[in-house]
Amino acid sequence: MKAKILVVDDETDLEILIKQKFRKKIRENEYEFVFAINGKDALIKISDNPDIDIVLLIRA
């Protein structure tokens, strides 16, 4: 079963880093990531993807 993870952070470089770090799991269809740049965007992504399993909020 694939885990669908919403990552919320305003650093666009984080998306690249996560995709690099988890590329094997993504390729093996174990993880799917959805990215949002702020809270408002995250709510839209949750609405568009009701099957999200977990939300990861990065706070600096």
Rank of each mutant, 00 (worst) to 15 (best):
R23I: 11
K19N: 15
V34P: 06
L14A: 03
D13W: 05
A42N: 04
L56F: 11
A3M: 11
Q20G: 07
F22Y: 14
D13A: 13
I46M: 11
I5E: 00
E30T: 09
D9V: 07
F33M: 08
F33C: 05
F33E: 07
K2M: 15
T12I: 14
T12W: 13
G39C: 05
M1D: 13
K45N: 12
L14N: 01
I37N: 09
R59D: 11
N38D: 15
L57Y: 14
A36E: 12
K45W: 04
F33A: 04
E30Y: 04
M1L: 14
V34I: 15
A42R: 01
E28W: 02
D53P: 06
V55I: 14
I26K: 06
D51Q: 09
K4C: 07
D9E: 14
K4Q: 10
D13M: 08
I18T: 05
D9W: 05
N49V: 10
V34K: 09
N29L: 13
N49S: 06
F22S: 04
E28V: 07
M1R: 12
I18C: 05
A36K: 02
L57E: 08
E32I: 08
D41Y: 04
V7S: 01
E30K: 12
D48I: 01
F22R: 03
K19S: 09
A36C: 14
E28N: 13
D48T: 10
L43T: 05
L14K: 02
Q20L: 11
D53F: 00
P50T: 07
P50R: 05
I5N: 00
K4N: 13
I54W: 03
K40E: 14
K21I: 08
I54L: 08
I52A: 02
K21C: 07
I52S: 02
L57R: 07
K24T: 06
M1T: 12
Y31H: 02
L57C: 10
N49A: 06
V7D: 01
S47R: 10
V7Y: 00
E11S: 09
A3E: 10
D10Q: 12
K19G: 05
K40F: 09
I18Y: 07
K24H: 10
L17V: 05
N29H: 13
L17E: 12
G39A: 04
K40Y: 12
M1C: 10
D48P: 00
L56M: 12
I37Y: 14
L14C: 06
G39L: 02
E11K: 09
F35T: 14
Y31N: 04
I18D: 02
E15I: 04
R27W: 00
I54G: 02
I16M: 13
L14W: 06
Y31F: 14
K40A: 08
V8W: 00
F22E: 04
K45V: 12
A60S: 11
R27M: 10
I37K: 13
D41K: 03
E32F: 01
Q20I: 11
M1S: 15
D13L: 10
K19M: 14
K24G: 03
E11D: 15
I58E: 13
I18Q: 01
L56R: 01
K4H: 08
Q20E: 14
I26S: 03
Y31R: 02
Y31D: 03
K24N: 11
E28P: 00
I54T: 11
E32T: 07
L6Q: 00
A60L: 11
E32M: 04
I54D: 01
